[in-house]
């Protein structure tokens, strides 16, 4: 199997279509605009030829997650806990308030907090979905409740864990 695959950023693609000329397997020519990953052999020809810089080569296997200091993680965790509370409080207001203005404000707060939280987790040792920590987290979820075991097992099979 190849080590990389080509990915097209559709927002940058200028439709000059040089990738169609240089691709040795026809993987770049599809009805969705995205590369056909099954056909792509990872040669990189399309990426080199693209005048818009819209095609990047993305690896199948990623390097290990960068280590994080425990103290940093601990301090970020306090922020995470607070933001989770704020998000959940906002969700409660969205569900229970009769005032449209309040509901809208709560919706904004809930959204913003979720984005902050996702970013905080990325900096707390969960940057990479293929990491050891993610794998451990998924295994813990399996034990927590069985409702989602099918989903979790699929993830454990699909993700190319690297550690």
């Amino acid at each position: 199997m190849s080590k990389e695959r080509a990915i097209r950023n559709l927002r940058l693609c200028s439709k000059d279509c040089l990738c169609l000329f240089v691709c040795p397997t026809g993987a770049t020519d599809t009805e969705t605009g995205q590369i056909d990953f099954d056909k792509c052999i990872g040669c990189g020809a399309c990426s080199k030829a693209c005048p818009a810089g819209a095609i990047s080569m993305v690896p199948y296997e990623y390097p290990k997650e960068q280590p994080k200091d425990d103290e940093v993680i601990e301090k970020l965790k306090f922020i995470i806990e607070s933001k989770v509370d704020q998000e959940q409080l906002a969700n409660y207001i969205i569900k229970n308030s009769n005032n449209e203005g309040e509901k809208f404000l709560a919706k904004i707060i809930s959204k913003a907090n979720r984005l902050i939280l996702e970013d905080l987790y990325r900096e707390s040792g969960y940057m990479l979905p293929q990491s050891k920590k993610t794998k451990e987290f998924l295994n813990q979820l399996l034990e927590k409740d069985t409702t989602n075991n099918e989903v979790i097992n699929k993830l454990l099979n699909l993700l190319n864990f690297n550690d």
Partner: peptide, 23 residues
């Protein structure tokens, strides 16, 4: 539960960035 949810959606975004749509 809220923390688990946020971590899962963060990992979803990580997969999205890598164009791993199913994951």
């Amino acid at each position: 539960l809220g923390e688990i949810s946020a971590l899962c959606s963060s990992l979803a975004r990580g997969c999205e960035k890598q164009y791993l749509d199913e994951e």
